[in-house]
């Protein structure tokens, strides 16, 4: 099956088996380095990519469902300013995911940031128990035990602040 898709900004046309998992496709046919694990659908949570701007476990997405899709892997995302927002939060808090889950964890955080970056009051998000529970459940999907929920929430809050500060600067520059 011929699949045309955009991976990390590059338009590709691949000839792959139609039911090939996206994770395998990215690893073998696109040579993405950040997908180092292969749980073959056992939900290890370490193959997260942004598929059409939303996080997805790439081992659960078949090739036929990514026709004309836009995919961002950590290989590409790590070079963006958005990634710096999160990495700066890691640095300032002195907490960092381990090498095993770094890529997936960072992309998952990005997914959450995109959901809430336009919210007016950050404190409202972090006082809403349902949202916090939802965020924590999402992170439990990644089967790596290097971080606790308190640290994850702190990173998200800090990253969200970084993102909003940067967005505000960009907005001001545009206005001026």
């Amino acid at each position: 099956m011929k699949v045309e898709l955009v991976v990390d900004g590059k338009t590709l046309s691949l000839n792959v088996s139609s039911d090939k998992p996206l994770s395998e496709l990215l690893r073998e046919d696109v040579e993405i380095k950040s997908l180092s694990t292969s749980c073959t659908g056992r939900l290890c949570g370490k193959c997260i990519v942004l598929l059409n701007d939303k996080a997805a476990l790439s081992c659960l997405v078949p090739a036929f469902n990514v026709k004309n899709a836009t995919i961002v892997t950590f290989d590409g995302f790590s070079k963006t300013k958005e990634c710096k927002d999160i990495e700066n939060a890691y640095q300032s808090l002195g907490i960092e995911p381990c090498q095993d889950c770094y890529a997936s964890r960072t992309l998952l955080i990005e997914n959450i940031l995109r959901r809430y970056e336009d919210t007016d009051f950050i404190d409202d998000i972090f006082s809403d128990e349902d949202i916090l529970k939802e965020i924590m459940e999402e992170h439990e999907l990644i089967k790596c035990y290097c971080m606790d929920s308190t640290s994850i929430l702190a990173i998200i809050k800090e990253s969200l602040n970084n993102r909003r500060k940067r967005n505000a600067t960009v907005y001001r520059t545009k206005i001026s």
């Binding site: 002195g94 907490i95 960092e96 381990c98 035990y145 290097c146 971080m147 606790d148 640290s151």
Partner: peptide, 14 residues
């Protein structure tokens, strides 16, 4: 110290 704290926290959780 910060790095050591983070590393030990990882190890405790692990």
């Amino acid at each position: 110290k910060k790095e050591m704290e983070s590393r030990l926290k990882h190890e405790i959780i692990d």
